[in-house]
Design a protein around this nucleic acid. Structure first.
Lengths: 195, 195
DNA sequence: GCTTTTTCTTGCCAATTGGCAAGCGGGTTC
DNA sequence: GAACCCGCTTGCCAATTGGCAAGAAAAAGC
């Protein structure tokens, strides 16, 4: 079991806060290494979300709208923490599923274990906060973009700032993530390639 | 100085966790009562956000898009905690302003004081978490609605679930919050009133 | 290799939303 | 009370996006 990537990731995200080797070891003990093959699930709708550091691979979260249409709500590139906030914090069944788009690898823990760690390693709380802030601001940003950019602008922004998404995800998933139909995305891409 | 509303709000939001009177008193001491007259600001863009329990009144957050157009990003009814997450957690200048839409009253504190409280009153952390989860899920929900509902559906949802907004806010602010122009909102309202 | 299934693209037309400019109406100022 | 400001509405037309169905391309199965 090699937990070095997890430890490196933690250190990288709280560079100003020294954590003892013993504490890092305790943290690592409470995460379980996990591989998820392509198209398999980290979280299925109806289950309670855990907490997962994605060290390798690419994931997406999705849900269904009232008509039953699948909507991709989020993409996770590697080196992000993956969890469904509502389910995770409140311990209730998730309405979203989270699926591996490519072969994935990472480190998994539960709400209770994470809480214990925050208790026994106070410096580690800073890591938890940093991850939460990252996810929160990402959502705020996304809402803002949805409000005041056109579909074409949203596409342009996505392809310049999150190129990896196009490398892994299907276009119809990207379309629903952008809030448009696959038909419209296809047209936008045609316009784009003309330039 | 009457801090009872603050104490009641805290108790209400962590009903399963008993907090001693002494601890509640300590918490109250670290919040400062504040009134904000109509149109005045809780937070101005460029400043660092504090943490505010809004016990009376109604607020809105807004920012500007690249063209300089004002966009309302959020409405806060009373009995909500008001803060700009990115600025508050990272201690950096806010890109949003938060303004009192009607006369407001509440209780204010800073990041540092709140942190001290979390340290000295561990039960109080549960309150902090509950507030964070509430804001986080509200944003996720909003993003989802923006993605897969039409402007008219978004309006219908807002007027049924958040009627107070229409009581306080200007229609042009509601329009930008819904991601449409004031012209479109006006038309949607006309269609609606026909029914 | 060939067939089957899934994903993506395209054409056609309809629905939604935006942009602009004019007008309306209530409140404020002097 | 006349002039002004502000927020909201309306009419007209253009731009954006969606819906559907058919076909092309790519991926998966055998």
């Amino acid at each position: 079991m090699n937990k070095q990537p997890l430890i490196d990731f933690i250190k990288l995200n709280i560079p100003n806060i020294p954590v003892s080797e013993a504490a890092l070891a305790l943290i690592a003990e409470n995460f379980e290494e996990r591989e998820i093959i392509k198209n398999d699930f980290l979280l299925r709708a109806g289950r309670v979300s855990g907490y997962f550091y994605l060290s390798e691979g690419f994931m997406r979260a999705y849900t269904h709208d009232p008509d039953g249409t699948e909507i991709t709500t989020y993409f996770y590139p590697k080196d992000r923490v993956v969890f469904e906030a509502t389910s995770f914090f409140l311990g209730i069944p998730s309405t979203e599923s989270i699926q591996a788009v490519s072969a994935c690898k990472g480190y998994y823990t539960t709400f209770d274990k994470l809480n214990e760690l925050f208790h026994s390693v106070p410096e580690f709380r800073e890591f938890g906060r940093a991850m939460l802030v990252r996810e929160f601001t990402a959502y705020k940003q996304r809402t803002l973009v949805m409000i005041n950019k056109s579909a074409e602008e949203r596409y342009a922004e996505l392809i310049t700032t999150n190129k990896e998404i196009f490398q892994f995800a299907q276009l119809r998933h990207i379309a629903s993530y952008l809030g448009i139909t696959d038909t419209s995305l296809s047209r936008i891409r045609r316009e784009f390639s003309k330039k």
